[in-house]
Design a protein around this nucleic acid. Structure first.
Lengths: 114, 114
DNA sequence: TGAATATATAAGCAAATCATTATATAATGA
DNA sequence: TCATTATATAATGATTTGCTTATATATTCA
């Protein structure tokens, strides 16, 4: 049987995680491009521990996954998560954040780092 | 021009409000039926001030509106809110909460009160 | 191997959140 | 008018959150 709805508990905890501008923007970016921690540090102009902590929350609940590539750890959306369709519908309604990555590229930060 | 996306700031603050099980359930119920405060007190088995405070948050950001009917104040979804389509897509993915109102009816609480 | 880079984690702290208790306001009905 | 009912608001306190600083771990490269 196709699962058409999500439990309220789980939905609330996912929405709570998405209810933070940094994490919401991260998810929107990750929905299109994998990113490493240092890119997020650049994009959000905040500390590395702060970024790591946000990513950990997203990972703990299964929304993103990590993969080491040499020195860097890349994060990506976990599209096989059972709640991904729920999240996708939300992300689809948000404005593209591609400009943030483009800015990184222009300042050479994307290439240098990853 | 049709507005197809929502600012990230606003989206995050809406998701934050929805990221609480009580408020999320309230919104799902209100999406189908108007309700008064005392009904929510029954449904959530919590204090009246707690319910009022949740409703105030939803009202402050424009997601619900209130209307006095005699002794009672009824809350309803503010469908003319510019962000309603965003919220609706989320609510549509959640399981019906009609059973909660049905329970109230069975125990006479819906009729007695409102 | 040792320095540099990328990341995670722990500890501490200020601010936000959510419930509770107490109180105020508004409407109803005897 | 007075008691009751419904609701809002204020004050308080415990918990959670998100940041910072400090430190640990893992990888790369000279």
């Amino acid at each position: 049987m196709l699962k058409t709805s999500i439990e309220m508990d789980k939905a609330a905890s996912i929405l709570k995680l998405l209810g933070d501008k940094t994490r919401l923007t991260m998810m929107k970016i990750l929905d299109k491009h994998d990113c490493c921690v240092c890119e997020f540090v650049e994009i959000f102009k905040t500390s590395q521990p702060s970024i790591s902590q946000h990513l950990r929350k997203l990972r703990d609940i299964g929304l993103v996954k990590e993969e080491r590539r040499g020195q860097w750890i890349f994060y990506s959306i976990n599209k096989s998560n059972e709640y991904y369709p729920f999240i996708e519908q939300i992300l689809n309604q948000l404005p593209s954040q591609d400009d943030k990555l483009k800015e990184l590229e222009e300042q050479g930060a994307r290439i240098t780092c990853c």
